[in-house]
Amino acid sequence: MSLAGRGDSDWLAAAARLAARARPLSRPNPAVGCIIVRHGIVVGRGWTQSGGRPHAEAVALDQAGEKALGATVYVTLEPCAHRSERGPSCADLLIEAKPARIVIAEIDPDSRTDGAGGERLRKAGIRVDHLPIPEAHASLAGFLIRQRLGRPHVTLKLAMSLDGCIALADGTSQWITGEEARAHVHSRRAIADAILVGGGTWRADRPRLDVRLPGLGHRSPHRIVLTRGDVPPDVRRIAAPADIAGLDSVQYLYVEGGARTAASFLAEDLADRIEIYRAPIVIGDGLRAVEALAVADLASTHGRWQLAERRQLGSDCFEAYARART
């Protein structure tokens, strides 16, 4: 199928959509997408496979075969420069395939690459362009934050009434949102490495914290409880939000609450995305979605969050806010 005339940013955005297929199955490697285009026609495409190998470029090159010669390669993350026991580097594979040009969205912050992949390709006579786009950055958020900050990307999920309550005054919370919103939550769980709740939520509800969508039960994330109390052997325990830095194999952490847990992650400035499911009901005297935060002044709160997505899920409204990039 010919798609001639599409710009570089469009091809990279398409590669980022492919990368979404790898999350979270590619862990501990990043979810990368790659598209190879020759004369306006896609001749190869790939995304990081389960367990991290083969890499996206290797899959796309294998599909393209000899058609990669003289083509343009669009990849969301700089091709790796280091050879491992599992195979050659992607930079070497690309040099062997001899494309005319490679367009990279994000430079790999891994010290084993970090510019070295692009430099090796340039020395081999291949044109390399760097074109950052928001879609690619978002698709690699977990990997980039893990590399730069030493912790996972944290999504804070809140289901609430119009007036910001997550439960009645007596703690009753089933169900504030409708079936479509709850199904959407399960789809979000399916792309997380781990899911976390607070000790109070765990003790009160004993939530299953799994994925209950047809055919996706195997995608249930690891379970974590923020508590100093006892948890079952198959549940991990951390004592404080800052302890997420020790979750080495986790790139994407999905935090479901409750109110105290939400406040603690916000207070520690550890939330990267907030996802709100807002039901068209008013509770009044109920439990608030977030416990009190000691905000010093309103000016400091502006500009921190940007609307990333909004959609209707049945009668409920879904809104996602991403941390503003600086």
Score class of each variant (00 low, 15 high):
residue 247 L to H: 01
residue 47 W to G: 08
residue 116 A to M: 12
residue 170 D to S: 05
residue 118 G to K: 08
residue 215 G to L: 02
residue 196 L to N: 02
residue 149 L to D: 02
residue 273 R to V: 01
residue 67 K to G: 01
residue 286 G to W: 05
residue 2 S to R: 11
residue 264 S to H: 12
residue 117 G to E: 01
residue 124 A to R: 05
residue 161 S to T: 11
residue 206 R to L: 09
residue 204 A to M: 15
residue 147 Q to H: 11
residue 206 R to H: 14
residue 266 L to P: 02
residue 69 L to F: 15
residue 161 S to V: 05
residue 85 E to M: 13
residue 236 R to K: 13
residue 248 D to S: 09
residue 168 L to E: 10
residue 117 G to S: 06
residue 201 T to G: 08
residue 262 A to S: 12
residue 150 G to P: 14
residue 291 E to F: 09
residue 207 P to D: 11
residue 21 R to L: 14
residue 187 S to N: 07
residue 236 R to V: 13
residue 69 L to T: 10
residue 123 K to M: 10
residue 301 T to K: 06
residue 318 F to R: 13
residue 240 A to Q: 12
residue 3 L to R: 08
residue 29 N to Q: 13
residue 131 L to R: 08
residue 118 G to S: 15
residue 91 A to F: 10
residue 258 G to N: 07
residue 237 R to L: 01
residue 151 R to A: 00
residue 244 I to G: 00
residue 28 P to C: 01
residue 53 R to H: 14
residue 119 E to D: 15
residue 32 V to I: 13
residue 319 E to Q: 14
residue 229 G to W: 00
residue 182 R to Y: 03
residue 287 L to W: 07
residue 304 R to N: 15
residue 127 R to Q: 13
residue 236 R to I: 03
residue 188 R to I: 05
residue 183 A to E: 15
residue 21 R to A: 14
residue 128 V to K: 03
residue 292 A to H: 15
residue 64 A to I: 00
residue 13 A to W: 06
residue 186 H to S: 04
residue 190 A to F: 01
residue 219 R to T: 10
residue 199 G to F: 00
residue 282 V to I: 15
residue 61 L to S: 06
residue 223 R to H: 10
residue 315 S to W: 13
residue 214 P to F: 08
residue 282 V to Y: 09
residue 119 E to A: 13
residue 144 L to W: 13
residue 299 A to C: 08
residue 42 V to G: 03
residue 254 Y to A: 03
residue 192 A to C: 02
residue 90 C to E: 14
residue 44 G to F: 07
residue 250 V to N: 00
residue 264 S to C: 11
residue 206 R to F: 09
residue 284 G to I: 01
residue 105 A to N: 04
residue 252 Y to W: 10
residue 209 L to S: 10
residue 105 A to V: 09
residue 314 G to N: 04
residue 227 T to R: 01
residue 11 W to K: 02
residue 124 A to E: 05
residue 136 A to H: 11
residue 216 L to S: 03
residue 157 K to V: 14
residue 180 E to T: 12
residue 311 R to N: 07
residue 156 L to G: 00
residue 305 W to V: 10
residue 171 G to T: 09
residue 149 L to Y: 11
residue 57 E to A: 13
residue 174 Q to K: 15
residue 320 A to W: 10
residue 256 E to S: 00
residue 7 G to R: 09
residue 221 P to L: 07
residue 323 R to Y: 14
residue 325 R to M: 12
residue 171 G to L: 08
residue 207 P to L: 07
residue 269 D to L: 04
residue 70 G to D: 13
residue 8 D to E: 14
residue 49 Q to L: 13
residue 323 R to K: 11
residue 69 L to E: 15
residue 28 P to R: 09
residue 28 P to Q: 04
residue 17 R to F: 06
residue 205 D to I: 02
residue 85 E to Q: 04
